[in-house]
Each structure stands twice: as structure tokens, then as C-alpha cells.
């Protein structure tokens, strides 16, 4: 599913192409968190004039949602044993490392395992998730130059999540990344191919 960009401030971003925010999820329970937070970002990020999209379990077609962006943020729900509503920001390379490592503990670095599918290999197209789509995108050279994945902790039992608070934290993280782009210009020609945390 793709929702139309949220109406709002359409001032051009400082560096040309507006940042892309892609909420990933489904209509059910806390799996909606990626959508809800993405849509809630229109106002706090009005100065960046982001293009906001929401998509429903896109599988490999997540790459279509990223096409044309230079700076993009994917927001997706994760289950990693953190406080519900907690947000962690990862580079694709860090997610690939976590997926390859098959992390199983609940330590903070392994929050990535909730997105990366942990040790279990993805076997069917039903299991073609964000990490697999990004791995395919890297192979096809289709990822934005700067891409981050924001994981939002859902909690084990669909605990209620304060979307306002979570979206404020997401906005802070996104602003920090966008500001780095503005300040440093050519920083990190292709962050997506480099390892490390965000």
C-alpha cells in the first residue's frame, strides 16, 4: 500500500531532493507503528519537506519506494526486548551484519535482530522482509546514497506505544542525520556499503 504524501510544508529541502520517509507495516496491531510514526512526522519535519510514504509488507518492492531518493529513512516495527516505543537507528550495513551473525540475545546491539530475522533464514517470499529487500537493493545498486532504518520496539505482547513520544524521538534522529547531510555536503558518498552503527 502506498499512501499519498502528507499535505504540509512543501518548501524544498536545503540540498535539493527532499528526504524520503517510508513507513513499513501492516494494518494489524503494533505492526502499524511504522505507518503511524511516519505519518506523524509530517509536522515536526515540515522544514525538511519530506516525502512520506507508507507501504504494506512490500517485500522486494520496498526498492520501488526508495527509488529516486538520496536520503531515506525506513521506519519499521521490531521486537528486540527493549522498552515499547524505543527507537534505534541502523545503517543497512549494520543490519546485514546482524542478519549474518544470527544474533539471539537481548542486548541493545542485537535490537537489530528483531528486524533482521535473527538466526532464522528467510525461506519464502512471505518472509522477504526489510533486510532481504535492502540486501537485494545493494546487489542491484538501487539503494539511496544515504539510508537509515529506524526500528520501533513493539514489545512482546502488543503493549500500548506512545506514538507521540516515539515520533518525537524519530524526528530528532532524522533531523540529526539530515543536518549532517546539510553541514557536510558530500559526506559518505555511499553509507549503505559501509559497516558500523548509525
Amino acid at each position: 500500500m502506498r499512501d499519498p504524501p502528507h499535505p504540509g510544508d512543501h518548501r524544498p529541502a536545503l540540498t535539493g531532493i527532499p528526504p524520503r520517509i517510508v513507513g513499513v507495516g501492516s494494518p494489524h496491531g503494533n505492526d502499524r507503528l511504522g505507518w503511524e510514526i511516519a505519518m506523524a512526522l509530517a509536522h515536526p519535519l515540515a522544514g525538511l519537506a519530506p516525502e512520506i510514504r507508507c507501504c504494506d509488507r512490500p517485500g522486494a518492492l520496498l526498492l520501488e519506494e526508495l527509488d529516486g531518493a538520496e536520503l531515506a529513512f525506513i521506519i519499521d516495527a521490531m521486537t528486540a526486548g527493549l522498552r515499547p516505543g524505543s527507537i534505534r537507528c541502523f545503517t543497512p550495513a549494520a543490519l546485514f551484519q546482524a542478519a549474518g551473525r544470527g544474533a539471539s540475545s537481548r542486548s541493545v546491539p542485537d535490537a537489530m535482530a528483531g528486524l533482521a530475522g535473527g538466526a532464522a533464514p528467510r525461506l519464502s517470499s512471505h518472509g522477504f522482509g526489510v533486510v532481504e529487500a535492502l540486501q537485494l537493493g545493494r546487489l542491484l545498486d538501487r539503494l539511496p546514497a544515504r539510508l537509515y532504518v529506524l526500528g520501533v520496539e513493539t514489545g512482546e505482547a502488543a503493549a500500548p506505544v506512545d506514538v507521540t513520544q516515539a515520533s518525537a524521538e524519530a524526528a530528532r534522529l532524522i533531523m540529526a542525520k539530515a543536518r549532517r547531510r546539510d553541514l557536510r555536503g558530500e559526506e559518505s558518498a555511499n553509507m549503505t556499503k559501509r559497516g558500523g552503527t548509525a
Partner: peptide
């Protein structure tokens, strides 16, 4: 890579038709 790119383009077009009528593709 070009074979896979072409496949994803065709898949995306199929999704687009479904979204055209269905409101969403899934």
C-alpha cells in the same frame, strides 16, 4: 542484475494495477 530488475519492474506494475482498484496491494 538486469534480469532481476526487469522482474521487479513487472511485479511492481502488477501491484500498481491492484492498488488502482483495491486501494492497496496487499
Amino acid at each position: 542484475p538486469d534480469i532481476v530488475r526487469r522482474g521487479l519492474r513487472l511485479q511492481a506494475l502488477g501491484n500498481e494495477i491492484i492498488r488502482f482498484w483495491g486501494g492497496r496491494s496487499v
